[in-house]
Amino acid sequence: MAKAVLGDVRLHFDELNKLRILDPEVAQQTIELKEECKAFVDKIAEFQKIVGNLIELVDQLAKAAENEKMKAIGARNLLKSIAKQREAQQQQLQALITEKKMQLERYRVEYETLCKIEADQNEFIDQFIFQK
C-alpha cells in the first residue's frame, strides 16, 4: 500500500529501506551503464594509443623508406657519374701520359745523338791509334 503511495509520488525504498528518488533497479542499471561506459572509454583510449604508435611507426618506416629511396637514387646517379669521372680521370691521366711520352721521345732523341757521338769518338780513337 505504502509502496503504491510512494510509487505515486515517485519515491522508492531500496533493500536497505532507504528512501530513493530513482527506482533502485534503474539506478542499478545506470551505474552499470556508467561503468561499462568508462571501460569502453578506457579501451578506446588504449586503442588510440596503439593506433598512434602504429602510425608513428609506419611514418618512421616511410621516412626510412624514403631515405633509402633517395640513397638508392643517389647511388644510382653516383654510379652513372663515376663512369664520367673515370672518363675525366682517364683523360687527365692520358694527358699526363702523353706528356711523359713526349719527354721520353726527347730523351730518346738525345740518347741517340749521344750514342752517335760515342760511336764517332770511338772511331776517332781507333783511327788515331791506327794512324800512329
Binding site: 713526349m102 721521345e105 726527347r106 730523351y107 730518346r108 732523341v109 738525345e110 745523338t113 749521344l114 757521338i117 764517332d120 769518338q121
Partner: peptide
C-alpha cells in the same frame, strides 16, 4: 768540340 742544339720539340741534340 761539342755543339748542343735544341730542336723545336725541345729535344737536345749533341753534335761532335
Amino acid at each position: 768540340n761539342q755543339v748542343t742544339i735544341r730542336r723545336a720539340d725541345g729535344s737536345l741534340i749533341l753534335l761532335n
